[in-house]
Write a protein that binds this DNA or RNA. Structure first.
Lengths: 225, 225
DNA sequence: AAGCCACCGTGAGGATCCTGCTGGTCGAGG
DNA sequence: CCTCGACCAGCAGGATCCTCACGGTGGCTT
């Protein structure tokens, strides 16, 4: 999930960002309302987490402006104050939820999940399968033909990205954005290197190959020939 | 889709161009506004992606000039700055959209599709069919009578070009421009060679032939006799 | 605080694959 | 039967990709 975090206090921002990333989300950050507005209007976020007090453009106005731009991304406000009046103001501005600092991180996560309208744990996809390859997202474990495979964090993200798009060709650019969060060309063979490592663990020694390269385009994971 | 990219920073240009090409588009590049204007007035582009800051002729002026020349090709501006004023200026100059650097490439792609007035993702044509031959543009896969066919990048583009024009005679010149991006006659039999290879994979072994030669004119793909 | 270790990106070298060209052959049309 | 366009197998240059070893970094332990 892609989350926009707009928070000026560096410490809080770092804490929240880290927590969200550990939970497997991609986090875009902005330190003031103006930057936040711009990133938000770019769209593509599933949720935005916005501090109410921000330099340049306060959180309330920011979300109002985002809504005016026709963006419906759900918003959660963070605030030092916790009065009822504040809450009403926030909702009127187009916010969807409200959290008073200091807050329990777990609660933020829960609300984010709720807002993104994900069935809370019930129907959620927790196991990806491609052929005899299995990935359990909760246990963070991977196995093929019943045999456990140890993956590094980056390798895991890479494989997850591919498996979620089984059968589709995934371009290098998509991988750099989705797995590395690079928005530029590193001009090195990062992707190839990790694909190679992944192959060593996932394909080598098992009869059928699952990771296929599509020259000039990218990679696919696929069970059939 | 044919896209004109006008960007002076070589790295950014390379990254964007590569991403677009991976996504199956044809990219024409210019490094300054003057060249950009020249290429744009040539027409034939579906979208142009223009940096605002360019040598010789800035992006804004360039697009204004293109519009003055009666070319309506939709334009997307790229910019380092992110102010609202800039956005307005851009729209006034005849730009259709606006993207602040650094931007997520996926977003650029989405906006390009939006501007080209493509049905947004839902109704998009992703599968081409001619007789029992099928091409899935997202999966980049081709199959005939249910049997998977492996195609090289150039072969894929060639077949796609033909299938999009089912029943129409496609001339050698059209192919050279649309598939090879050649704007001159190579005076060799590139086209014939690739048609031949394509036949070997697509027609050979299946009863009915789909690729037909039209002597002195070009080629057609057609299911019936 | 120092040292160790896991993880990851870098860059080079080499393997592999793709593709355009050549030139001989085929076959349609006149 | 002749001519010209089309076909296609084989080849080589070059682009792309794979793999490996190395070193930096940051986290963790002692």
């Amino acid at each position: 999930m892609r989350i926009l975090l707009v928070e000026d206090d560096a410490e809080t921002a770092a804490f929240v960002a880290r927590g969200l990333e550990e939970a497997g989300h991609v986090v875009d950050r902005a330190a003031d309302g103006q930057d936040g507005l711009f990133l938000a209007t770019g769209g593509g976020h599933d949720v935005m987490v916005v501090d109410r007090m921000l330099p340049k453009l306060d959180g309330l106005s920011m979300v109002r402006a985002v809504r005016a731009a026709g963006i419906a991304t759900p918003a959660i406000f963070l605030t030092a104050r916790a009065g009822l009046g504040d809450r009403i103001e926030g909702l009127e501005a187009g916010g969807d939820d409200y959290l008073a600092k200091p807050f329990a991180f777990a609660e933020l996560l829960a609300r984010i999940n709720a807002l993104a309208r994900r069935p809370p744990l019930q129907q959620e996809i927790t196991v990806l399968r491609v052929g005899d390859l299995e990935m359990d997202l909760i246990r963070r474990s991977v196995s093929r033909a019943g045999k456990r495979i140890e993956l590094q964090p980056r390798e895991f993200r890479l494989l997850e990205f591919l498996m979620r798009r089984e059968g589709q060709v995934v371009t290098r650019t998509m991988l750099l954005e989705g797995v590395w969060d690079f928005h530029f060309d590193p001009k090195t063979s990062v992707v190839e290197t990790h694909i190679s490592r992944l192959r060593g663990k996932v394909d080598k020694g098992f009869g059928q190959e699952l990771l296929h390269t599509v020259r000039g385009a990218g990679y696919v994971i696929r069970a059939d020939g």
